[in-house]
């Protein structure tokens, strides 16, 4: 088995207009900047982006927003220092925003990846973010029913990878990447070091079954 592809362009080629895309990362850590640049060049638009943040400065998700490629953002924390392109599009009413509590975002993605049809969480109970959702009181505590969140694609950033699609990460760049690998139908990993030898099984964080393609991109921002 060999899931390696030679170029970023080849890796993002299957992405079509209107696709939903999970993008790993938190702040500037663990964002697949190379794949995002390739996606911008590839030209797909009307995208739904699922990520923790909505980009900052002129790189990463901010580039997709600047390029007018994003129809909807699903995230927990769109407003960050330097999130000018998100704010511009939001204020002009050019994008739809769905704010999801961060743990609920991770769990909805996990539910999608694990074949779970929904779950009950106390997070958000009694707040605006629970409006219109089914609720239940169990042993005196209020819970909100949350649905799984699937995506067509996931763009991931890892430190090491092998031809089988196994991945490991560096520091706090792990964040949403492993769970997103499970929640998308087609996960693409941008990896700093791709080896032709297998990773040591004990060091694998994301098992290759969750990853459809691996492309080497040595740059760390």
């Amino acid at each position: 088995m060999d899931k390696r592809v030679n170029t970023l362009a080849e890796a993002v080629a299957p992405i079509q207009d209107g696709a939903s895309i999970m993008i790993g990362g938190f702040g500037s850590s663990g964002i697949p900047f190379g794949l995002i640049d390739a996606l911008l060049e590839h030209g797909a638009g009307e995208l739904t982006v699922i990520s923790n943040n909505a980009g900052a400065g002129e790189t990463g998700i901010a580039k997709l927003l600047k390029g007018g490629r994003v129809a909807k953002v699903i995230c927990s924390y769109p407003r960050s220092p330097g999130s000018i392109w998100f704010e511009k599009r939001y204020e002009a009413d050019e994008i739809e925003l769905e704010v999801v509590p961060q743990g609920t975002l991770a769990e909805r993605i996990r539910a999608a990846g694990a074949g779970i049809g929904g779950f009950l969480t106390p997070t958000g109970y009694g707040t605006l973010l629970a409006e219109g959702k089914e609720t239940r009181v169990i042993d005196g505590r209020g819970y909100v029913m949350e649905a799984p969140l699937h995506a067509d694609f996931a763009l991931l950033r890892a430190e090491r990878g092998d031809p089988w699609g196994n991945l490991s990460y560096h520091g706090t760049a792990r964040n949403f990447n492993p769970v997103m690998a499970t929640g998308a139908r087609h996960s693409i990993a941008e990896v700093r070091h791709v080896s032709s030898d297998p990773l040591a099984p004990e060091s694998v964080v994301t098992p290759g079954i969750f990853v459809q393609s691996v492309v080497e991109y040595g740059v760390r921002p």
Binding site: Y77, V99, V100, G103, T104
Partner: peptide, 20 residues
């Protein structure tokens, strides 16, 4: 979140922390 509609809300992990 504030009451300012122009100001995009950002919840992060706050709702998760307060229940857990």
């Amino acid at each position: 979140a504030t009451l300012d509609q122009k100001f995009p809300p950002a919840v992060g992990g706050a709702m998760d922390l307060v229940v857990g």
